[in-house]
Every structure is written in structure tokens, then in C-alpha cells.
């Protein structure tokens, strides 16, 4: 019984991490209409930034957020200007290829600059565990989970109640219409892309005390983030949160009951089945997504 309860909790906690990574992806996916194959690499860069801030400036990784997030925002804006914007009008083939190029580039520039050494960010908090009888909750994971929820709420409020947020929603629902209303589409795209990257930077900072940094850390989380985003419904933030938790649970249970080595295979299979049956995702998409490629 304890094992099952613990599996649920572990699943939810790792699901929180998946959700945290996926929120930025779903934002970019939803608004800029780009599948960012380099998303995991931005995560990796964010983790490196956190590591450097932690090691050279001695700043706690959770405080480092204040530096890392703006830095990632800036990086996102530049990337959008140089790489994404030129192909925005192109085919989805171009979108995918250009981000695959970006993936190669970032992964290997990290290898070139920082070598393949594994780096870890560990503070006293990293090893703290809340224990309730036989149930254990790791502190950094709990924090990441809470931040995922907070970010979801924050994004929701931002989109609902600020002028900029409303403009972003307008663009995601009806590009032409928004343009006619005098919204600067170009700015909205840049901002949304940069915000998505900033969010993955936040995820990176929250994950640094749990994982380790190395140039190929991205792919570990990249594909699962895609699965979460699609399951949750494109551009649907609550969907991303729920999708993340769901995948976490699936992973945890299939690992416990079937085989740890097959848990990825199982959620990929679920992913394909969901795509076949309900391609709009389990929780519905944001408005205006027909043009992304769904009937």
C-alpha cells in the first residue's frame, strides 16, 4: 500500500518537473506555431547558467533565477530574431529543420566550450526530505512542483488580465484579425518566444539542484516534453500541467508494475494512441489551432 501511495507521489513530483519544462514549449508551440526541437538545449543552457552563477558568484540556485531567467529571455529574443523569424512564413518542414540545426549547434557548442564533464549544483536543501511514515517527499522536487503550479497560474493571470497577455491571446486566436487591430505581431512573436525560453530557464534553475549539467542533458527531457505538450493540448497551459502529471504517473506506475526499462516505451505508445484517437489532446487545445495541422 505504501509502495502504491509512494508511487503516486513520486509520479506527481516528477510530473511537476515535466510540466515545468513543457510550459515554455507549449507557449512557443501555441503562439509562435513552431515546434522547438532545441527546447531541451535551452534547458541545458539554462542549467549551465545556473551552474556558473552558483559556482562563480556563489549565489543559491533558487536566487539565481533572478539572473538566469532574464538572461534566457534575452537569449530567446536573439534566437528568435536571428533564426526563427526568417523562417516563420515557411513550411512546418522548415520550422522543424531550423530548430534541429539549432539543437546540433547548442549541444556541441556546449561540448566545445565546457567539455563533457558532468557538473552538479548541490545545496543543503538538495538533500532535504519530508518524511510522513513511509512516505517520502524530496524537497527540491516539491519546490519544482509548486513552482510549476505557480507558473501555470501566473501565465493564466498574465494572459487574462494584462494588455500584453490579451494581445498574445488575440494573436494566437486570429493572426490576421490581430494584425488588423493594430497589434504588432512581430513583437508579440519575439516576446512569446523569449518568454517561452525564459520559462525553460526557470525550469532549468529549479532542476539544477536535482539533476546534473552536461551538454547532452537536453534530449533526456526533450521528447517527454513534446509528449506532454501534445497530450495536454497545444497552447493549453493547464493542459501542460495536467499532461505532465499524467505522464509522471504513467511512468511511475508502469515502472513499478511492468518494468523500469519500459516506462518510456509505454508512455510513447499511449502518446501514439491518444494522437490517433483524440489528436487535439486530452484537455483540448487553445483556440485557433486548426491551421497548425489538425483537421
Amino acid at each position: 500500500m505504501d509502495a502504491i501511495l509512494q508511487s503516486i507521489i513520486s509520479g506527481i513530483l516528477v510530473g511537476g518537473i515535466y510540466a515545468l519544462i513543457s510550459i515554455g514549449l507549449t507557449l512557443i508551440f501555441g503562439i509562435v506555431r513552431i515546434v522547438n526541437f532545441a527546447h531541451g538545449e535551452f534547458l541545458m543552457l539554462g542549467m549551465y547558467f545556473t551552474y556558473f552563477v552558483f559556482t562563480y558568484l556563489g549565489i543559491d540556485p533558487y536566487l539565481a533565477i533572478l539572473l538566469v531567467v532574464p538572461l534566457m529571455f534575452f537569449l530567446g529574443a536573439i534566437t528568435h530574431k536571428l533564426v526563427i523569424k526568417p523562417v516563420l512564413r515557411g513550411t512546418s518542414m522548415q520550422h522543424i529543420l531550423v530548430t534541429v540545426g539549432l539543437m546540433f549547434f547548442f549541444q556541441n557548442i556546449a561540448l566545445l566550450l565546457w567539455t563533457a564533464d558532468y557538473r552538479t549544483v548541490r545545496t543543503d536543501l538538495s538533500s532535504q526530505v519530508l518524511r510522513f511514515g513511509n512516505i517520502n517527499i524530496g524537497m527540491p522536487r516539491l519546490l519544482a512542483f509548486l513552482v510549476a503550479i505557480a507558473v501555470t497560474i501566473g501565465i493564466y493571470l498574465f494572459l487574462k488580465h494584462t494588455y500584453l497577455g490579451k494581445a498574445i491571446r488575440a494573436v494566437s486566436m486570429d493572426r490576421q484579425g490581430a494584425m488588423l487591430m493594430g497589434i504588432n505581431i512581430d513583437f508579440i512573436y519575439t516576446f512569446a518566444f523569449a518568454l517561452g525560453i525564459a520559462l525553460v530557464g526557470l525550469a532549468a534553475a529549479m532542476m539544477s539542484p536535482i539533476y546534473y549539467v552536461f551538454p547532452t542533458v537536453g534530449p533526456m527531457f526533450e521528447v517527454v516534453a513534446f509528449v506532454v505538450v501534445v497530450l495536454g493540448g497545444l497552447g493549453n497551459f493547464t493542459g501542460a500541467l495536467l499532461g505532465g502529471l499524467l505522464i509522471g504517473l504513467v511512468e511511475s506506475f508502469s515502472g513499478f508494475f511492468i518494468a523500469p526499462a519500459l516506462k518510456e516505451a509505454i508512455y510513447f505508445a499511449i502518446f501514439i494512441v491518444v494522437l490517433a484517437i483524440k489528436p487535439s489532446g486530452l484537455f483540448g487545445m487553445g483556440a485557433g489551432f486548426e491551421e497548425v495541422g489538425l483537421k
Binding site: 509502495a3 509512494q6 513520486s10 516528477v14 534530449p219 533526456m220 527531457f221 523500469p260 526499462a261 516506462k263
Partner: peptide, 20 residues
């Protein structure tokens, strides 16, 4: 006798099995 993937982002289910 438990194989697992070294890319796994979470090993809690493996550990639960071992605990049992």
C-alpha cells in the same frame, strides 16, 4: 533482476520495486 535506462529522468519506481 532489473534493467533500467540510463537516460531515465526518474528512478523512483525502480527503487520501490527494490524496496519490495
Amino acid at each position: 533482476f532489473e534493467p533500467y535506462s540510463s537516460d531515465a529522468a526518474d528512478l523512483s519506481s525502480l527503487i520501490e520495486r527494490l524496496k519490495a
